[in-house]
Design a protein around this nucleic acid. Sequence first.
DNA 1: AACCCATTGTTACACATGCAACCATTTCAA
DNA 2: TTGAAATGGTTGCATGTGTAACAATGGGTT
Lengths: 160, 160
Amino acid sequence: MPAHNAPQHAQLILENFLPYRLSVLSNRISGAIAREYSKRFELSVTEWRVMAVLGRSPGLSANQVAQRTAMDKVAVSRAVAKLLDSGRLLREFDDDDRRRSMLKLSDAGYAIYDQVVPLTIGFEQHLLGEMPEAERELLFRLLDRLDELEIRAEAVTSHT
Amino acid sequence: MPAHNAPQHAQLILENFLPYRLSVLSNRISGAIAREYSKRFELSVTEWRVMAVLGRSPGLSANQVAQRTAMDKVAVSRAVAKLLDSGRLLREFDDDDRRRSMLKLSDAGYAIYDQVVPLTIGFEQHLLGEMPEAERELLFRLLDRLDELEIRAEAVTSHT
DNA sequence: AACCCATTGTTACACATGCAACCATTTCAA
DNA sequence: TTGAAATGGTTGCATGTGTAACAATGGGTT
């Protein structure tokens, strides 16, 4: 009997699989942050992302918000509706193009924004605080590179 | 009039915010992979994760699968139900403890497993392929460290 | 045995998400 | 000017997900 031990089946070690690890890690981190502000401010992750972008860039349209947050326009539309409803957002429509909305935080919106921002930044500090500057930079460079790479998923299927 | 320009509001640059970047990146990557196998094999992400673990470790219980996949037991329960239904999974119950299930892939399950594994590995190759070994190792070390860190979300709230 | 509690797994509900179809408005070309 | 295509945004539907309540089984104490 030959002494080879080729596995009968393909082998995948999930715990070492990068996409899986990113997913689990990201869910844990985002979940932990979201649990904080969602309880305190009745705010979902998508709503918060919309607020975060508009807090820094008032006047964007819903579409522009969608692009910047990497959310699809439906998610933005619904988040905007809720934020308008709860009085955290103001909306006007452009006179020149009445389809286009112009969004910005209300005072109530900024009151929340000014509390959540330090909270999230504190969390990031906690994550990165003890990481040497060099590693931190490398981490972000790696993320940049991965961002660029995975654009074309189709290129991959031919590999196998 | 003094020449300070302290911002009126807290500032957060979402595009540089680590949790946000991880979330977007992870969603893109997992989404790209999932689109491939979900179309081809009528397989959701959670179902695939269950299969991936059982392919390598046959005989685990649903609870054990949940722990290894970082999914909650409800998600596993439902994924298992579907996989049983579609004949990709076999289940027995332990004679000594009839609550405890013992799960493994059926032949049909392995047939799929053996196709999806190389597909996902090819994808990871595509992501990591051009990354120098040293950076790759660092990336995984950084992920390890982040994994350990963010366990206690509460520790953070006092930071602010 | 009778009880209490922990564990495994399922079900029910509320809520988020993605895709497709849709309406309103604008643009452009015939 | 009018009709086709493009754009911004919303709504409906089917599906996924998390939380809590639940049934069933088992372990341990009296």
